[in-house]
Simulated scan of single mutants.
Amino acid sequence: MKTLNFGLCLILVGLLTIMAAAEAKSNYGEALDKTFMFLEAQRSGGYYDAGDHVKFGLPLAFNVTMLAWGTIEYRKEITDLNQMGHALWAIRWGTDYFIKAHTESNVLWVGDGNSDHYCWERAEDMTTPRTAFKLDQDHPGSDLAGETAAALAASSMAFKPYTLPTLIIS
């Protein structure tokens, strides 16, 4: 099982590295822009985990949490509002997926990673059944539910100082 989504890891590394290498000659802003472009290609309701159509909840929740914390930590250093807009949009994409998976109090729906690994076709042509499992008091998954809650909490902190009109993504 894969443990981290490559695109989300790239964006986090990009955010963390930009500020650490402010004096370097490398163009980290350009690297971050390309990271956002790659990440946007992984979108389909939530973020895909790899080249197939898997969306693992725990790695996704962890990566959204880390992306949110990176955005919070380096808020002052990310002076390009377009890049901040892309970072927040990437966070929002993940949180929207979690909100859709949380259909009622104490319920979180998750996919079946094993069957999803067998689908290696374009998402537009996908006919593989999308089995889902319900996490609740009778079907435990506190690790995933806890990390999802952490992702949502960190994301709310990342969005707190901004209003929608402030962030324009071109």
Score class of each variant (00 low, 15 high):
101 A>I: 00
130 R>C: 06
116 D>E: 08
106 N>W: 00
119 C>T: 08
108 L>G: 01
99 I>D: 15
105 S>R: 13
110 V>S: 04
103 T>D: 13
105 S>K: 14
131 T>L: 12
112 D>Y: 00
99 I>V: 15
114 N>I: 08
117 H>E: 13
127 T>H: 08
102 H>G: 05
123 A>R: 07
102 H>Q: 10
130 R>I: 13
125 D>K: 07
112 D>V: 05
103 T>L: 13
124 E>Q: 11
131 T>R: 11
122 R>F: 09
105 S>A: 13
107 V>G: 06
102 H>P: 00
115 S>E: 04
128 T>F: 00
102 H>K: 06
101 A>L: 11
103 T>H: 11
104 E>G: 10
115 S>M: 05
104 E>Y: 09
119 C>D: 15
134 K>F: 02
100 K>N: 13
104 E>W: 07
132 A>C: 02
114 N>C: 03
116 D>N: 06
112 D>Q: 04
134 K>D: 02
133 F>K: 03
130 R>G: 01
99 I>A: 15
115 S>F: 00
99 I>W: 11
116 D>I: 04
124 E>R: 11
107 V>W: 03
132 A>N: 04
109 W>V: 07
99 I>H: 13
108 L>A: 00
100 K>S: 13
110 V>Y: 01
124 E>H: 10
126 M>C: 15
117 H>V: 06
133 F>E: 05
119 C>I: 03
115 S>D: 06
131 T>Q: 10
118 Y>D: 05
127 T>I: 10
99 I>T: 15
126 M>N: 14
103 T>S: 12
116 D>P: 02
131 T>W: 08
127 T>V: 11
107 V>C: 07
105 S>I: 14
104 E>K: 14
127 T>L: 07
115 S>R: 06
122 R>V: 03
102 H>R: 07
104 E>D: 15
110 V>A: 09
106 N>V: 01
113 G>Y: 02
103 T>Q: 14
126 M>D: 14
114 N>E: 09
100 K>Y: 11
100 K>H: 12
110 V>Q: 05
129 P>F: 04
108 L>E: 01
115 S>T: 07
99 I>M: 13
132 A>Y: 08
121 E>S: 10
125 D>A: 08
130 R>Y: 10
110 V>F: 06
